[in-house]
Amino acid sequence: MDEVESAIAWHTQLPVELYTAIGRVAHSTALLDAMLGEFIEELADSHMVWPLVSGQSTDWLIQTCRLFLSEADPQGAHYPEDFHDEIQRCLASIFHRAVDRGCSASLSGLCR
């Protein structure tokens, strides 16, 4: 097992595989956050919300998606009811996976 010295880890020796795994998780999280932000833009019907969503935590983005879905289309006029249900299931799945990874202590208040 190869090891690399890292200033980030205060000059401790960490396995290269660990850095690779951290990189995959960081990339997946960044991609998820970007997708959630784009979904909020779609629900808000405006690209002007990007400064608001940019840099927010995953739990904030999930919560905001849930809020926008219920507030932007509460009667299902724009999106069909089965779309609402599927999106809520997807957001719940994202939430549970994030909690399993220990992404954020504030995620515990999201699941209803």
Rank of each mutant, 00 (worst) to 15 (best):
residue 1 M to L: 06
residue 1 M to E: 08
residue 6 S to W: 04
residue 6 S to L: 12
residue 6 S to Y: 03
residue 8 I to Y: 13
residue 12 T to A: 08
residue 12 T to E: 12
residue 13 Q to V: 10
residue 16 V to S: 02
residue 20 T to D: 15
residue 21 A to K: 10
residue 21 A to I: 07
residue 25 V to M: 06
residue 27 H to N: 07
residue 27 H to F: 13
residue 27 H to I: 10
residue 28 S to A: 15
residue 28 S to V: 04
residue 28 S to G: 14
residue 33 D to E: 14
residue 34 A to H: 11
residue 35 M to P: 00
residue 36 L to V: 04
residue 39 F to W: 09
residue 40 I to H: 03
residue 41 E to Q: 15
residue 44 A to V: 04
residue 44 A to Q: 06
residue 45 D to S: 11
residue 46 S to E: 03
residue 47 H to S: 08
residue 47 H to V: 07
residue 47 H to D: 08
residue 49 V to Q: 03
residue 49 V to F: 08
residue 50 W to P: 00
residue 50 W to D: 03
residue 51 P to Y: 10
residue 52 L to A: 07
residue 52 L to Y: 12
residue 55 G to Y: 15
residue 56 Q to E: 08
residue 58 T to F: 13
residue 61 L to D: 03
residue 61 L to Q: 11
residue 62 I to L: 15
residue 62 I to N: 02
residue 63 Q to K: 06
residue 63 Q to V: 02
residue 63 Q to P: 00
residue 65 C to W: 07
residue 66 R to L: 12
residue 68 F to E: 04
residue 68 F to C: 06
residue 70 S to L: 04
residue 73 D to S: 04
residue 76 G to C: 02
residue 80 P to R: 01
residue 81 E to I: 14
residue 82 D to E: 13
residue 85 D to Y: 06
residue 85 D to I: 07
residue 87 I to Y: 01
residue 89 R to I: 11
residue 90 C to Q: 15
residue 92 A to P: 00
residue 92 A to L: 11
residue 93 S to N: 07
residue 94 I to P: 01
residue 95 F to I: 02
residue 97 R to Y: 10
residue 98 A to K: 02
residue 98 A to H: 05
residue 100 D to L: 15
residue 104 S to E: 13
residue 105 A to V: 09
residue 105 A to H: 06
residue 111 C to E: 13
